[in-house]
Amino acid sequence: MAAKELPLSKDFFKGFWKENPVTVQLLGLCPTLAVTNTAINGFAMGMATTFVVVSASTLVSIIKRLVPRQVRIATYIVIIASFVTMADLFLAAQFPAISKALGPYVPLIVVNCLILGRSEAYASKHPVHRAFLDALGMGLGFTWVLVLLGIIREVLGFGSIFSLKMFGDWFTPWIVMILPPGAFFTLGIIVGVINYITGKEGSETTCH
């Protein structure tokens, strides 16, 4: 396999920029748009997703020879749903406020195409340590975009950053930024700017 020739660091770092799950592959857009009204929510969602994608990819890679081909997708989904349940219970027990703010979007990590995509396209074909690094890179790549989106929307929409007030009384918050339209605008502009920097002509989602 050609991928074996790649250094391990490539497996890890490709998720940050070159194959970033949000800005390049446009995967997992539901949580990206839904919970990034503040930076801390974006961070929490990113971390929860990273936990699930790393655990699921590692486990899928360990059991890849035991799973019959016909039922592999169903198996992966059950594995993912189990890890999501753990993440959900953990958040509810340790960080009730964040768990409440994220609401049903935590269980919706189950259907984040990013996670199933990594299990199917990468972890099921590669050794454990590579699957782990790949998933960790993708998870952190997902997290930084969510935090960036959260920071932009929080600064413009609330005038604060990680709940610390940034401006004086002269600042009028742009309410639209914390409402649904603000999420669409911000992500559209971020993807556009990144396409402009990398010289790419437009982008399409690889998931339906």
Binding site: P181, F184, G188, G192, G202, S203, E204, T205
Partner: peptide, 24 residues
């Protein structure tokens, strides 16, 4: 005539923002 960098998904997201605004 959409700017090249915005073709496809980015312009769709921007249009979706306008739609969301009108649905509000």
């Amino acid at each position: 005539d959409v700017p090249p960098a915005l073709r496809g998904a980015p312009i769709t997201l921007l249009v979706a923002g306008l739609l969301a605004l009108s649905f509000m």
